[in-house]
Amino acid sequence: MASEPYLYSAPALILIVTVMLVPLVIGISYAFRDMTLLDPFSGGFIGLDHFRAIAKDKTFWLALKNTVYWTGYSVALQFLFGLILALLLDKPFYGRGLAQALCFLPWAVPSFLSGLNWAMLFNPVVGPIPHWLYGLGLMSAPDNLLSSPTHAMWGPIIANVWWGIPFFAITLLAALQSIPRDLYEAAAIDGATPFQRFRSITLPFLAPTIAITVMLRTVWIANFADLIVVMTNGGPADRTQIVASYIFTQAFRRLDFGYASAIAMVLLALLLVYSMLIVLLRQTLLRER
């Protein structure tokens, strides 16, 4: 039967189209309309007014800068520590299964709970971290990092790194385990040092996985507002506001759906440009090889 594959995939497709694509299109139309929830007379088309407002919105520009900072450090640190963990777990040792399960456990912790958990650790009243930082001389008094106007962003970043290391470790471990072992043996017989083996066998084999996970993860983390909403709600004074949490604030607290959708479109456009740049970069690199 020719219609069979369509029958099998129809229920999933119908849901995706009605609950994701239709709202996406409607959301795009909101960006050009005056749309607030509590005002029954709103809904008229206002052209590009929202986008003009965004261009002048200082909070938006701050949030954009914060998004780059938050995404850059989160991805870099998650990747670095995830790679080290994957390399450590790739070696067989007694108790590896248990160690692996325990190291991956943060991934299972619901994101809102990781946020609350870390907010508590940073709290000087019940958490140990301010006292440790004070003891190490990194802080002049045991204060809450999350209310620091200069370093507050590191609170959500650390929570995000804790939560996201397992993701990179799992994907990289899967890639590591697919590298043929005899390559390493041959290299060792030829007298290659461990570092040389890492550079000329491990890295080239991992490169495709690294490229794709880093790219997808960057997009995902740039959109990931949960930790910030839970831990700081964008504060103090929007210092930890990223674009995704700013969209949520506009829609959820101010109920300004039009403006929220306009910002979302800008974010979407920026992410598309980013993805395209990465794809182009990858192709040029592959061609040069």
Binding site: A2, E4, P5, Y6, Y8, S9, L13, I16, V19, M20, L21, P23, L24, I26, G27, Y30, M35, L37, V219, A222, N223, A225, A244, I247, F248, A251, F252, F257, A260, S261, A264, M265, L267, L268, L271, S275
Partner: peptide
Amino acid sequence: FTFRGKFWIVGLMLLTQMFPLVMLIAPIFK
């Protein structure tokens, strides 16, 4: 199965994984 439109269906499903879901909050509520 290989069937007509499969490429587009896969593309569509990948797309849903890429765009910011916060974008859907307002329209879905409405």
